[in-house]
Design a binder for these strands. Structure first.
Lengths: 224, 224
DNA sequence: TTCGGTCCTGAACGAGCCCTGAACTGCCGG
DNA sequence: CCGGCAGTTCAGGGCTCGTTCAGGACCGAA
């Protein structure tokens, strides 16, 4: 059950939007003024907040900023006035996740709502530490002994694959299946090439021995 | 069948979450205090652990850290308090794989659970100990009296074959069939050569008598 | 003791695995 | 259109490791 909060003072618009969202299967609560909206939103029990800017009591920017200040990260979709370029920038600045310019069409609203919900559901993968190495799968960043290492996309994927299987020996075939597609039919040498690049960027630069070759079997990322 | 462990002391929440997860097709066991949760989790038989932080007995951080310490790598999804930035950082530090801020919505929980399961890694095959010897089939590593022995691929395979059949006498033919392909038609002497090499690297170096010759029958790896 | 067979052992060879630098290709941004 | 970057392919070469071989040691039986 996905619960939305709609903060909108114009009761006509509010009702229309509410009914439309409900028709899509969402549960919708409506708040007609800024103070009440802020108070409800700050409970953090909603999956998404649709927030008008012009509100009595407390405007949308202040609500949004206040929520972020308080550590509430519920996705916020802000409804800005049609001519306000400034509004849009400010909306994003205050921590809104997306904005929609009035007047908007219904399908667009639905699409944005769904997109935000989908995004919110994306996992926060946690950084993984292995020895001197730390990788952040979400940010696709890697550090060794505290300083960042810049890797290309493929390099990162190979490293991540190895790191998630620390100490296991992984054959070139397994690595290819895991990082490339299962039906990649190129030269397995590609793995050697990437191992080489990782070693150059990490092992050599930091004087560690991270990736060991197990001749005839594959490669192993060492856990110490 | 995917089995989850939910460690949550608030029975109302626990029940709701349990039912929801079960509705998604998971098998859920619930533990209401930290001590019990830790013991269950440390069996390593779950596919994922959903762990509350505030628990009687032993808090979530300590449970998670303890599990990692013990080598249990079951994915952990931690439930943190709504305002705790520190909690989140600490959750990830103690080895949690993801966290979710209370209160959370159900679809989000499900999505996170699925995401963690998706990238979960098949468990490490456990090391085998025989007397002074320990081999780790996944890492393809071998230790004797605690210090590592470096073996080539074939040497390792022969040793693994013997170790998995401790105390059994194995003929050269059987060893060849097990380690080489069934239709290997070279000189059976090859087995003698590998036994020799293993003895040199293990028996001689560590002063043990690991592999015994049974004249006319084959070889036996001793279990003591 | 002698003899046949089995096992031990060191050495040598060469196939193939892996390493490596470089070239090639396609893509993207300027 | 050009330059740079990322992904992939290619080819040469080093060297490890698997295998073979031959001679000697050892064992059991006659």
């Amino acid at each position: 059950m996905t619960k939305l909060l709609l903060v909108e003072d114009d009761k006509k618009i509010a009702n229309a939007v509410k009914r439309g969202l409900e028709a899509e299967g969402f549960t919708v609560e409506v708040s007609h003024d800024g103070e009440d909206g802020y108070w409800r939103a700050s409970e953090g029990t909603y999956d998404l907040i649709v927030l008008d800017i012009m509100l009595p009591g407390r405007n949308g920017f202040r609500i949004c900023a206040g929520l972020r200040e308080a550590g509430i990260r519920t996705p916020v979709l802000m409804l800005t006035a049609k001519d306000g370029d400034l509004d849009e920038a400010e909306a994003l600045d205050t921590g809104a996740d997306d904005y929609l310019t009035k007047p908007f069409s219904f399908p667009v609203l639905i699409a944005r709502v769904r997109a935000l919900l989908r995004r919110a559901v994306e996992p926060h993968p946690s950084p993984i530490d292995v020895g001197a190495l730390r990788i952040d799968p979400g940010a696709r960043r890697v550090w060794c002994r505290g300083s960042e290492v810049s890797l290309t996309s493929r390099e990162f994927e190979v490293l991540e694959f190895l790191i998630r299987r620390v100490d296991l020996v992984l054959s070139k075939t397994e690595i290819i299946a895991g990082v490339w597609s299962d039906d990649f039919d190129g030269d397995p040498n590609i793995v050697e090439v990437y191992i080489r690049r990782l070693r150059r960027k990490i092992d050599e630069r930091f004087g560690v021995e991270l990736i060991a070759t197990v001749r005839g079997a594959g490669y192993r990322l060492q856990g110490i």
